[in-house]
Write a protein that binds this DNA or RNA. Structure first.
Length: 103
DNA sequence: AGCCTGACTCGGA
DNA sequence: CTCCGAGCCAGGC
């Protein structure tokens, strides 16, 4: 486990229930500007943790796929259970649900 | 070291 | 809206 990953996880944990954040946003909050890919990489390594990874989506407000479509459906279900709505095209209206990190 | 891959993002066409 | 190319970084070979 590397320190950068820890910073990323800490940033993700700050995302409140019912809100979502983008990879790039998490990267900035974690002090790693332009390292969106690193965020995805770090989250991919997650296994059984208290990190709300399901609240992290890409810049388009869509859930990033990773092989099994099953996980995407699972993530969407968890978000909807927290009150996050999806558009007919499967996107999340970021203007309304994106987490605004406070300095 | 080089090359390829990947839960990404942005600007341009 | 979609597709492309470039920039980014960690890991494995």
């Amino acid at each position: 486990m590397i320190a950068k990953a820890q910073a990323i996880y800490a940033a993700v944990r700050r995302v409140p229930k019912g809100k979502v954040a983008t990879y790039g946003q998490i990267a900035r909050v974690a002090g790693l500007p332009r390292r969106a890919r690193l965020v995805g990489y770090a989250l991919a390594a997650l296994e059984r943790s208290d990190v709300p990874w399901h609240r992290v989506v890409n810049a388009a407000g869509k859930i990033s796929e990773r092989g099994e479509p099953m996980f995407v459906a699972q993530q969407r279900a968890m978000l909807e259970r927290e009150g996050v709505e999806f558009t007919a095209s499967g996107r999340i209206p970021l203007a309304r649900y994106q987490w605004k990190a406070q300095a």
